[in-house]
Design a protein around this nucleic acid. Structure first.
Length: 595
RNA sequence: GCGCCCGUAGUUCAAUGGAUAGAAUAUCGGAUUCCGGUUCCGACGAUUGGGGUUCGACUCCCCACGGGCGUACCA
């Protein structure tokens, strides 16, 4: 049982005995005492003031006195306004540390076949262009969320839905056919996803030129768009694709394979993966089927032009198109089909979609539609809605060419990590292979930490220069602290230092603060799971290393002569290192033993 | 127009309805003969504005102002 639980239960008992009020101990959440007051844990006593018919100060004092009398872990207390600050018996903290050091895996709930099954969808790229910074945030959030949910005792299936069909793919295909001269990733020495992206851009360039030409002849913008031969050719290609035209299909397949090979490389470097990948080319027909079923059951309606709609005005929303007048599917239809396939494949308890907040409306509608179509999980689907990433120079706009490419970004981060390390002379004496590994960890760690430390729901500013700073609230700073602890532990081992019994040691203030912080880790993970927030873990990791640095600054470790005190400090160091590594791994970030 | 989200130090981010709103960075000043000077300590500096609910509001409600996103037979 944690110290928080011990105090919460004791307080509940005190309130019951003193004021005859029944309180659920779980509802009492002791807070860490602010540093300007004396104490370790703080209880807010306002909730019981009314029942006690006494002043907040009196209630705090009475509960405090009761605790000192009846709870051995409590040494003394003070009351300020309605806040009861409790000082825990110092030697108690040694046993807390000992308990943490001997609890495997922080006491996280083990995952069994009975555990809830959560499916997390993330990444969800289009196959007509390479991944960019926005996808990077998505991928990192999705992966980290999956790790956190696993630590919270869930079975997790990571899934990806690849948008591999539609007019946008046809544009790339058409451009390649017209102007590609048989180019392949091999012949051009370019990653497949970039090659296809280039042709997509090329299509757009020609299309724009064509529009300008037509408008110069006096057509309106709309007329020009409808008349554009290039666009009509792309539309024809989509129809040919839908009807299963062999030539179009084989071109489509070949080009998609190139893109997947490129994506795989990017995913691998990002350190993310998937248990099951779905393709919209497989799911869109199922969605169509489902919608037609709904139409028959009177849950949807058909308009004169043949298009199929759902009336959501009763739910306070608008009418939503589900099948075009030509019978083809839209995005929503595909998502319905994808949901159906997934729930056919897995006994899912909870579905989480990691998708940007520009699609909030889409998921609101999807939830209603799935519910209406009889999917019992529809109502409870979770849209993990995250904010956009902006840059110091402004927003990313693909039309203006200000998109930050994921591969370029990763290269840049690792190169910078290497430059900084070399400048500081940190990697002297390492082999090339070691340098490569370390700079990869640091560069990627900087990128990941910076993107994950911010509350996912918020829009954020990504500043590459700031992210790789070895100081401040950054990945490298945390990695550095970890490496330094490893260095201390190595030296202790080289010197043959053994861990002796430290249970009788009374830790000092610094040590207690660090132990208390370490003891918080499991509840932080649980909180991150409840709130779907990797940022809580990231900020915890930072707070933890800051706490360690203060301890490190004030207390000698290797030079301490009392071997029991030294044992306590070595154990504290080891547990801190383990916790840092564990927290960072929940973010998908690796930590180096030297850097 | 309508709907949703967001407004916190110069800047980037924190703060389950709880104490004097915390960090980082930048700027200025200081400590550390010592386990990695990539450390530690201090100063400066903020809740967009106006009402309301509450013992207590950055947080909840209303209004105004400012920003973002959506409202496609795009995905």
């Amino acid at each position: 049982m944690s110290i928080d639980d011990i105090i919460a239960q004791a307080v509940a008992k005190a309130v019951k005995e003193l004021y005859s009020v029944d309180v659920d101990a779980a509802s009492i959440q002791p807070q860490t005492t602010k540093k300007e007051f004396e104490g370790n844990l703080t209880i807010v006593v306002f909730p019981w003031v009314k029942a006690a018919r006494k002043s907040p100060e009196a209630v705090g004092t009475e509960i405090g006195e009761w605790l000192v009398e009846n709870e051995p872990a409590v040494d003394r207390f003070n009351v300020i306004k309605g806040f009861l600050n409790i000082v825990i018996e110092p030697s108690f903290w040694s046993s807390v540390l000992n308990h943490i050091a001997h609890t495997p895996n922080y006491g996280f709930k083990a995952v069994t076949d009975e555990s809830p099954l959560v499916m997390v969808e993330y990444s969800s790229p289009n196959t007509n262009k390479p991944l960019h910074l926005g996808h990077v945030r998505n991928n990192l959030l999705g992966f980290s969320l999956a790790e956190i949910l696993k630590a919270c005792g869930n079975r997790v299936i990571k899934t990806n839905i690849v948008n591999d069909r539609g007019i946008h793919i046809c544009k790339s295909m058409l451009a390649w056919k017209k102007w590609g001269n048989g180019a392949t990733p091999e012949s051009m020495g370019v990653k497949g996803d970039h090659l296809i992206g280039d042709f997509y851009v090329l299509f757009d360039k020609h299309y724009k030129a064509e529009l300008a030409e037509l408008q110069a002849k006096g057509m309106s913008e709309e007329e020009a768009a409808a008349a554009s031969p290039l666009m009509n050719e792309a539309r024809a290609m989509l129809r040919a694709w839908e009807s299963g035209d062999a030539e179009v299909r084989s071109l489509w397949q070949m080009m998609n394979e190139w893109v997947y090979a490129g994506f795989d490389e990017t995913y691998k470097r990002l350190g993310v993966d998937f248990d099951k990948i779905y393709y919209e080319s497989d799911t869109y027909l199922q969605g169509k089927e489902k919608v037609l079923e709904g139409l028959e059951a009177g849950k949807m309606y058909r308009r004169e032009d043949g298009s199929v709609w759902a009336d959501l005005t009763a739910e306070g929303l608008d009418h939503k198109l589900l099948l075009r007048s030509d019978g083809t599917s839209v995005y929503m239809t595909q998502d319905i089909g994808t949901a159906k396939m997934r729930y056919d494949d897995y006994p899912i308890d909870k579905m989480i979609y990691v998708v940007g907040n520009e699609q909030n409306y889409h998921f609101q509608v999807l939830s209603l539609l799935l519910d209406r179509l009889g999917f019992k999980w529809g109502k409870d689907l979770v849209h993990f809605s995250y904010g956009m990433v902006e840059l110091p120079q402004g927003k990313m706009k693909s039309r203006e060419g200000t998109v930050v490419d994921a591969d370029d970004l990763m290269n840049e981060m690792v190169t910078t990590a290497r430059e900084v390390s070399e400048e500081l002379g940190k990697l002297d004496g390492c082999t090339d292979e070691e340098i490569k590994q370390i700079t990869e960890m640091v560069g990627m760690g900087a990128l990941k930490y910076f993107l994950l430390k911010v509350d996912p729901r918020r829009n954020m500013m990504f500043n590459p220069k700031e992210s790789i700073d070895f100081n401040g609230n950054t990945g490298p700073f945390i990695q550095y602290t970890y490496a330094r602890i490893c260095s201390v532990l190595r030296k202790a081992e080289e010197a043959g230092m053994k861990i002796t019994d430290y249970l009788s040691v009374k830790p000092g203030e610094r040590e207690i603060a660090l132990i208390q912080r370490l003891a918080d880790f499991p509840s932080v993970v649980a909180e991150a799971g409840r709130n779907y927030s990797p940022a809580l873990i990231a900020n915890y990791a930072y707070e933890l290393v800051k706490e360690y640095n203060q301890f490190y600054h004030d207390c000698s470790i290797l030079r301490e002569n009392d071997e029991n005190v030294r044992s306590l400090r070595l154990t504290l160091s080891r547990v801190t290192a383990d916790t840092v590594r564990s927290a960072m791994s929940l973010l998908g970030i690796q930590v180096p033993e030297r850097m």
